[in-house]
Simulated scan of single mutants.
Amino acid sequence: MLQIKRKRNYGIDIARILSMFMVVVLHNLLQGGVLDFDSLGTANLMYFYLENLCIIAVNLFALISGYLMVDRKWKWQKLIVLWCTVIFWSVVTTGSFMVFRGTFNVKLLIKSFFPVLLKQYWYFNGYIVLFLLIPFLNAGFKYLEEKVISSVILALVLLSVTVGFIGNLFEQGGYTAFWLIVMYLVGAWIKKRQPIIKPIWLLMIYFGGAMVSLLGEVLSIVKIGHVDSWIKYNSPIVVVQAIAILLFLSNLKVTNNKVCQWLTSVSAMTFTVYLIDGNHYFYQYVLTNSFSFIKGVNLFSGVITILIGSIVMFMIFISVEYIRTSIMKKIR
């Protein structure tokens, strides 16, 4: 029987699971062919609102890294293990879906063996840089004055959501190692300071922020003809939303042993969800327009289909990772 450590913050496990589920929803809406970037239709605006709720996924996952790692011992072996997992799922996902679709591309299969070199997963490439810098980042929290570290983090965030948001800080909308470092620092700062804000206010910030982004998207469509820059990880609204959800979930109390066991097990496997769902072959050749049929159904059915479809995909991805880890444990 798994022994539950009461000191574990299961709210963070929920946050990790939620962030990867949001990634699946995001990909299904965008690459799945649901979103129309120049339409003001009611259904399309609702899907954009759902997108705005889930766009915090990357920021939330990076915030969690800082929250968890700032007080932990850095071990280089963890990166090697994770790197091997990335290669495994890059090759297996690519090969499996080639077989499933009945098409075989030698070039793409060979590329799948070199996911880092060929930037198959942008987040992992950025995470490598972040991981190697964690000892230095953590040392800052240990040896610098609190006022200094807080000022530096605040300056980095403000620069990122202003200068960086308009594209003049080499952040590419948040698709960089630098942005992951900024989010790591914020997550670590939250862990150290433990700011207390009423849960209702945090939820209002989260859902209200998505609405503000939606208004911005509507204005962009009206004035420019298409959605401009609102769906960016370094959007000031998206950053505030992600921080609000981290604060909300980090203060949740979970006491049921079975729920705690489930959260512990599933959260440890969540990165595989990204590795499969974000796999180049799956993303480009399988997921593309696979949910576009939703445009032909009513709004309620469309939203339910997206959510249920995303849950099913998430659970399938978790299940195959469970099989892999179970086999690896038996081999060892």
Rank of each mutant, 00 (worst) to 15 (best):
A15R: 00
A15E: 00
L275V: 07
I134V: 15
V212R: 03
L202H: 02
L252Q: 13
I56R: 00
A244S: 15
W230L: 13
I4C: 09
I205E: 05
P135T: 07
L109Q: 01
S265R: 10
M46C: 10
V239P: 02
L130I: 01
L63Q: 01
L169Y: 09
L299I: 15
S39T: 10
F282L: 08
V186G: 01
R6C: 04
P236R: 08
E146A: 10
V24T: 03
Q120G: 15
V297Y: 08
G174I: 06
I196N: 12
V99A: 15
V182F: 03
Y283R: 13
D13I: 06
L40C: 07
C54W: 00
V212T: 09
N289I: 04
V58A: 02
F291W: 09
T162K: 08
V218W: 08
T42M: 10
S39K: 11
I4L: 13
L144F: 13
L307M: 13
V34L: 11
S220M: 07
Y233D: 01
L185S: 04
L35M: 08
A155F: 13
T42I: 13
L82M: 14
Q3H: 11
I306L: 14
K107H: 12
V186E: 00
P195I: 05
S310R: 08
G11Q: 07
Y67P: 00
F300Y: 15
L299S: 12
F37E: 03
L215T: 05
M46D: 00
F170H: 13
S65R: 02
L215I: 04
V157M: 06
S229Q: 10
Y322T: 06
P195S: 05
K142M: 12
Y233E: 02
R8C: 08
L202M: 08
